Simulated scan of single mutants.
Amino acid sequence: MIDGAGVDRKALEALFGWYEAIGVDAVVLDAPVDRFRAPSPAAPSIDRRSPTRLPAGEAPPAAPLAAPSVSGERSRGSEVDEVMQARAEAARAATLEDLHRILDQFEGCALRQTARQLVFSDGNPAGRLMLIGEAPGREEDAQGKPFVGRSGQLLDRMLAAIGLDRSTAYIANVVPWRPPGNRTPSPLETEICKPFIARQIELAEPDVLVFLGGAAAKAITGSTEGILRARGKWSTYRAGGREIACMATLHPAYLLRQPAQKRLAWRDFLAIRNRLEGAE
Rank of each mutant, 00 (worst) to 15 (best):
L15H: 14
L159K: 07
K233F: 03
P136I: 01
A21S: 15
P61A: 02
D25L: 08
V33Q: 01
A66Y: 01
G137W: 00
P179T: 04
A88H: 12
L54E: 04
A14W: 09
E134N: 05
E73R: 12
A135I: 00
A215H: 01
P179A: 06
E20W: 05
I272V: 14
A279V: 10
R49W: 07
P136G: 04
L103I: 09
R76N: 04
D3C: 08
L256S: 00
I162E: 01
A26E: 09
R231Y: 00
A161G: 07
E139V: 06
A91C: 05
R37N: 09
K145I: 03
G149F: 00
A248R: 00
T52N: 11
R178Y: 04
C109N: 15
R275F: 02
D8R: 11
L111S: 09
R166K: 14
P60N: 08
Q113W: 06
Q105V: 05
G214E: 02
A248S: 10
T236I: 15
E243F: 10
R37D: 02
R116S: 14
I132A: 04
E79V: 03
G152K: 00
G163T: 06
A230F: 03
S69M: 07
E191Y: 06
A204C: 15
P180C: 10
H251W: 00
P195T: 11
T168R: 14
P61S: 04
D141V: 01
C193W: 07
R238M: 11
R231H: 04
S167L: 13
P64A: 06
Q200K: 15
A66N: 04
G241K: 12
R92F: 10
W177G: 04
E134F: 00
L111R: 06
R128W: 00
A253I: 00
T114H: 07
I244M: 05
E225F: 06
Y19S: 10
G4P: 04
F211Q: 03
A204I: 08
Y170A: 06
G17R: 12
A215P: 01
A239L: 12
D122L: 09
M84H: 11
G241R: 13
D165G: 14
L99Q: 07
K145N: 05
A38L: 07
A169E: 01
E189H: 06
A91H: 09
E280R: 15
A90N: 03
L29G: 10
P68E: 02
R128D: 12
W177M: 04
V175I: 11
E225T: 08
R157M: 09
P68K: 02
N182C: 07
R53Q: 13
P206Y: 08
I22H: 12
E243Q: 14
A198T: 14
D81L: 14
S75L: 15
E189S: 08
A245P: 08
Q117E: 07
A56W: 07
P39G: 07
R116P: 03
R157K: 13
I272Y: 03
L96T: 11
A62L: 09
I46Q: 15
R53H: 11
A142R: 15
L12Y: 13
G232V: 01
A279S: 12
V80Y: 06
C109M: 05
S235V: 00
A239N: 10
R116N: 14
T184W: 02
Y237K: 05
R263C: 00
L111P: 03
G226K: 10
